[in-house]
Design a binder for these strands. Structure first.
Lengths: 336, 336
DNA sequence: CTGTTAGCGCCTTCAA
DNA sequence: TTGAAGGCGCTAACAG
């Protein structure tokens, strides 16, 4: 690979001159610039990005850390992140946190290969997050709540969302409502569950532990837990799946058992992923402002990079999306 | 930020010693190593990735270049890429080519920030691709065909896929078959169209230019072109959308006009994206071996990096997936 | 406008 | 086992 040295030599100028010329500085004459450019072209010279980043101690890129690049992550969120990042002339790279401490994500977080990062990856530990955040390296987390001088939190109002979902079910006459949870360590899940509890409570319905089923936020998990529910003697009036993926898995399990949604049972999800609208029946769910969350996250980073002071915590609101998986419950005929 | 110098100073050793200790070399005593590690920890030292990459002139990361990070890209493909990459202990980063020549993708391609790259982004020009590829920097393209010493091609058999789709329609009694194309400059599209033509030809059906509609591979494009088709006087027996996204957009247009699929018209897509199975009716389509394409791509890169010689061209086969959007055409009652 | 020079932070011979 | 020193490729004073 040709270096700037080779270019300078070929063009017959000093290295610095070549550098200036290549960076479009106005310190060199048009003639030299052309000479240098010609030399660069003929050598197929490409600058070494590291060397220049090293020198300037700044990369102009921010990282988006996802738990799995191929996962059903939120394309709107990425869109938001992407839009704001490119609008600011920064580069955006996405990397996965598969592999935990040895993952690419951890590497990027720790080795200052980027100027800032957004984390949406439950498999990055709080510990890694906390010890990576430092002055001059803003970190925004979208999936947890962390108190640190250098970590900024953006959350959607999961509690309220959980409340909304549960209340919608209650208002449709359902009282025996199962909650299919996400993993135990999921902050989001815990808040959604809190909302579920609150709604039950506000409507004078006693919480029954038997209706809390532990899932894992995956489609298979939803399928499995639903099968389990079906295998049990008692069946709820409705199921609140703590995310859409699980609800879709559940839908499949229900269909296989000829249990009709929403005639026999009502179900509701959380997230409003793209698929939700296409499954049959279309899934009622809780919509999160994903685009906003993504763009806000980057926005915070840029403010921080510019040395401004910003809040450490933001909460975005959620919204009920009524589709066709929830229906008014037919009460058993009163005996006359 | 603490540098290795600070660590060395605090630990009371030379810089090189600190470096050895931190890199687990066996050239330092256990005692020194511990001393250095303690110092590093207390300073919250993190090595600067650039500096070390610069020194070793190798990054251990490969880039996956997508036209849009938030786009409906192929999660299975990414899965394949990801699996093989991490299995080889390399890092994977995804970046977008939005912005063309000024995009992050172009930057990564040109500034040797990665050891190899996989391109699946029609908005990266052949020119950029060609001039980025160089010895020691293997490039695999998944969406075009390029002849260069340093570019490797992996294609799915689009022509055969197009043939399969069209033939399936023909075998169901359809003869007036519209083709909704992708963008003009899409290599994939051209091959699919070729397959369409071949099938028509093999079955003695004359190609009619009026049945070729120019789309753009987006859902909106499919919607728009279908509306157009509907607005015209003549309507085809069936439509072959050159990708699923467009077919889904088309489905919507058809539904809005109370044209039933597959009763009034049969349609087929291409790609077998996740949604295809969930739309109503479930979309018949052509499935591509996406996971294989992704894993093969990285595999090729690693072979190249290891100095092995590999073929410049691979073709993976496609397969017809029958679902419910294609139906045998009722012939008009013969007059008796 | 151009050239000289001193590092950015790290790794790695080489000599002690 | 440890330390001194050179340099990866580039940028940015500074001096001419």
């Amino acid at each position: 690979m040709a270096t700037i040295k080779d270019v300078a030599k070929l063009a017959g100028v000093a290295i610095s001159t070549a550098s200036y010329a290549l960076n479009n500085s106005n310190k060199v004459s048009q003639a030299t610039k052309e000479k240098v450019e010609a030399a660069a072209k003929s050598l197929n010279y490409k600058k070494n990005g590291f060397a220049s980043d090293l020198k300037r101690t700044k990369t102009n890129t921010i990282a988006l850390i996802l738990s799995d690049l191929s996962g059903p992550f939120y394309s709107e969120l990425i869109q938001g992140v992407q839009d704001v990042t490119t609008a600011n002339g920064f580069d955006l790279i996405a990397c996965s946190s598969i592999g935990g401490a040895n993952s690419t994500a951890t590497k990027f977080l720790q080795e200052k290969r980027v100027d800032g990062a957004i984390i949406l990856a439950h498999n990055i530990s709080d510990e890694v997050t906390l010890q990576s955040a430092r002055k001059g390296f803003p970190l925004v987390v979208l999936d947890r709540k962390l108190d640190s001088d250098f970590v900024y939190n953006i959350e959607v109002d999961n509690t309220h969302g959980g409340y909304l979902a549960t209340e919608h079910l209650i208002q449709n006459g359902h009282r025996e409502i199962a909650y299919v949870s996400g993993p135990y360590n999921s902050h989001d899940n815990n808040l959604r569950f809190q909302g579920y509890m609150n709604a039950l409570n506000d409507h004078g319905i006693a919480y029954q532990p038997k209706w809390k089923i532990i899932g894992d936020f995956t489609r298979e998990g939803g399928y499995r837990t639903t099968k389990m529910l079906i295998a049990q003697r008692k069946f709820p009036h409705a199921i609140f799946y703590s995310n859409d993926e699980m609800a879709i898995g559940g839908l499949e399990a229900l269909r296989e058992n000829n249990i009709s949604v929403p005639d026999d049972i009502s179900i509701i999800g959380f997230d409003d992923i793209q698929l939700a609208e296409y499954v049959s029946p279309p899934l009622s769910t809780i919509k999160q402002p994903k685009y906003e969350a993504g763009s806000l996250a980057v926005h915070v980073i840029f403010q921080l990079l510019a040395g401004e002071k910003v809040d450490h915590h933001y909460t975005l609101s959620t919204e009920l999306v009524k589709r066709q998986s929830v229906k008014q419950r037919k009460l058993p005929e009163p005996i006359t």
